[in-house]
Design a protein around this nucleic acid. Structure first.
Lengths: 303, 303
DNA sequence: CAGGGTTACGACGAACGTAAACATT
DNA sequence: AATGTTTACGTTCGTCGTAACCCTG
């Protein structure tokens, strides 16, 4: 038996569904199914009652569940104690992140991480995707979290998808947009558009999406280029144009009614956020833990 | 992290040596080394101080060790509870064993096993190797423990070595043997010899050893064939001849001074005791546990 | 027929054993 | 030399994801 199997079992028991647990653990449903089967095989009895509307713990399952929680708690305490002992050691980790990730997602992630590992010293660097990538190459940062840097990557780097998001068109919250949920590509081409600067991951993803539809950014009515997401939001809010943003970057502004989100009719532009680091990097304990942490249950960035 | 890794760590900590732990856990030394390395990597710090005279726990290692013991204890309690819940279920396991194993090794093994899993119902069948094999084929027993049945086996069976032993020549504890520790092949060929019956694993192993030296049993002076190990020992003790036996079958008689062990000069005949079961066998919990148990630390048969 | 769980299968990585190297006494 | 650990390498087995399938409301 494996601690991660206990974690899986606890997650399944908590959400009462293989498929939901699979999503939360970043696994496929069959993988969860197989793991549960192997655990049941280990204890020689069924632990979950399967039904078409999810699963429930059997009597034996309840026993295993309660002990599994205890064991995991004990192991967390173990990690904390080792942590306390090594407090004097090098626990520093420098994380670089693109604007979207660094400004809107990562702070909460780091906060959760530091709650689990209080002695970790994390330094955060935010810049646009290209700049962060260069810093990673030059060893100025240990690890990066970026919009999917696609294939322009050598074997020297490891990438691992940790979350996903989508691109939105953002508009001022008034006519003609306020009562619409979509915008046609044709409309978007004509509208005044504010873009992020070159080197922005969001901009690149948008351009790649355009390319896949046979379009180029030149054909659009780009009024301004800005490197600050806040500046863009303010500009859109002021009604000076539309822009492109990730959902996470504008979700609070949307909730506050400051800007209005639109999707492009019939299209959807997904973003994968990835962890990137050098293959040969010898991480200290904080680095190893942070990588493990991002692989754990729940969405590490949208927490 | 894995429970078996905790077990390995505890074993290493207990015996303060990678190589000794490897033997006790039926692993190679490099395997233990690699596992410890991977555990140390997980916690981000060294857990054992290596020296040429074994290993000692570091401060961090002591912490991990104490928690590991707790976690394993908790997991044993978990198994016990599941066990109690399933007490009404089918917990029966029929184990067949050859004379050597069944008479001299298995009783203690089963006793230890039942101490760990009190609800297990184990029935033991003892007969010679060939008979036990036939019973296994006919599903009269669930599992067999035998002298290595070599290669005369199909894919339908799984074999797993669980312990080893050696063949001895046993002699009466008086002249001319009492002051000797070895016997030449030439002497053995001439001496009156008492053999186990055909179908005995011990006899087959002896005959195979002879064959590897270019000899046949016909060339020996076989005075009698007996199917009872006790009868053979009594006969040897009475000075009526020499015989061949496994060390485990005669160790108490040797300790009591009733018979005298000899090895064949320049030769050594090893015995591997193996667990054998049908590949497709769907074991109940007792069966699974028994198989796991035999793979655990310590020599399961010479306990 | 849609949501949820299982089965089948190919790919990848972890763990093992063997053998050889290396370190210490 | 002997004992004990590490490194190197090929093999095997476990775990994963994809895709197809099956069951039930």
């Amino acid at each position: 038996m494996n601690l991660s199997q206990f974690e899986l079992l606890c997650e399944v028991a908590r959400v009462k569904s293989f498929s939901k647990a699979a999503k939360l653990l970043h696994l496929s449903q069959p993988a969860v199914s197989a793991q549960i089967n192997s655990i049941e095989d280990f204890y020689g009895t069924q632990l979950f009652e399967r039904s078409s509307s999810g699963v429930t713990l059997t009597e034996a399952g309840k026993i295993v569940y309660s002990y599994a929680k205890e064991i995991l708690k004990l192991h967390e305490a173990l990690e904390k104690e080792v942590d306390a002992l090594l407090r004097t050691e090098n626990q520093k980790l420098v994380i670089g992140a693109s604007s979207n990730v660094g400004n809107y997602a990562l702070p909460c992630t780091i906060w959760t991480f530091k709650e689990k590992y209080p002695s970790a010293e994390i330094q955060q660097v935010v810049n646009n995707t290209d700049t962060i990538l260069n810093m990673l190459k030059n060893d100025q940062i240990d690890i990066a979290i970026l919009e999917e840097p696609m294939s322009n990557f050598t074997d020297d780097f490891v990438t691992r998808t940790v979350s996903n998001d989508e691109l939105l068109v953002i508009a001022p919250p008034r006519e003609p947009w306020i009562n619409r949920t979509t915008i046609t590509l044709h409309e978007l081409k004509k509208a005044p558009l504010i873009m992020r600067e070159k080197g922005s991951g969001i901009r690149r993803i948008f351009e790649e999406a355009l390319a896949s539809w046979g379009l180029k950014l030149d054909e659009f009515n780009v009024k301004a280029e800005m490197s600050s997401i806040n500046a863009i939001k303010s500009t859109v809010e002021a009604g000076l144009g539309l822009s492109i943003s990730s959902r996470i970057a504008c979700r609070t502004a949307i909730r506050a009614g400051l800007i209005h989100p639109l999707t492009i009719e019939g299209k959807s532009i997904k973003i994968n956020y990835q962890l990137v680091f050098k293959t040969k990097k010898p991480f200290n304990i904080t680095g190893k833990r942070f990588i493990r942490f991002l692989a754990g249950p729940g969405d590490p960035l949208f927490c």
